[in-house]
């Protein structure tokens, strides 16, 4: 083995040599893929109301909300399929990371701004996300994404 070997290769190699880890990795990848596909399909059923939900955050002009209401689920679908099939996995994982950042910023911004308008109007625009369960879920997602990224086959 060469002296200065990149850590990623070491992870990839150690996984390659142990079938159990390969299977585990596959399952995690498929799990995230299914999560994305589920999210995408449920939104693609009714883009019009999804557009309204985006608009309720008041972060985007209407046209942007409408465009996002078809584009975001389409992107999620592509990412999900990509992860499911194991093709263009690196690119898909990159999108996961990008989306993660954008959405958390949007959510926090909406939470903070939405409630500073004091007039009884939270309505259904922002549903409860709580902190504990999504926190665990997100940390797991982050960890899984990181694991998948660093253990990917550099094809």
């Amino acid at each position: 083995m060469e002296a200065a070997e990149p850590p990623m290769n070491a992870v990839t190699q150690s996984i390659g040599s142990r079938p159990i880890l390969r299977i585990g990795r596959l399952l995690l990848r498929v799990a995230i893929a299914l999560l994305f596909l589920f999210a995408a399909i449920t939104k693609l059923i009714d883009p019009s109301s999804f557009a309204q939900q985006i608009a309720n955050y008041q972060l985007t002009p209407w046209l942007a909300s409408a465009v996002l209401s078809v584009f975001l689920p389409a992107l999620e679908l592509c990412v999900g399929i990509s992860l499911l099939l194991g093709r263009w996995e690196s690119g898909a994982l990159l999108w996961v990371a990008i989306l993660l950042t954008i959405f958390s910023g949007a959510l926090l911004s909406a939470i903070v701004r939405g409630l500073s308008i004091d007039c009884g109007c939270f309505g259904r625009s922002i549903e409860n996300t709580g902190t504990l369960w999504p926190l665990i879920r997100n940390l797991v997602l982050l960890a899984v994404t990181g694991f998948l990224w660093f253990s990917r086959d550099k094809k």
Binding site: P47, F71, C78, G91, L94
Partner: peptide, 19 residues
Amino acid sequence: AFRQAGLILLVAVGLAGVT
């Protein structure tokens, strides 16, 4: 990865357009 991400984006845009 960037190239792949770009391709995914293209497919997504196409899909979005059709939708």
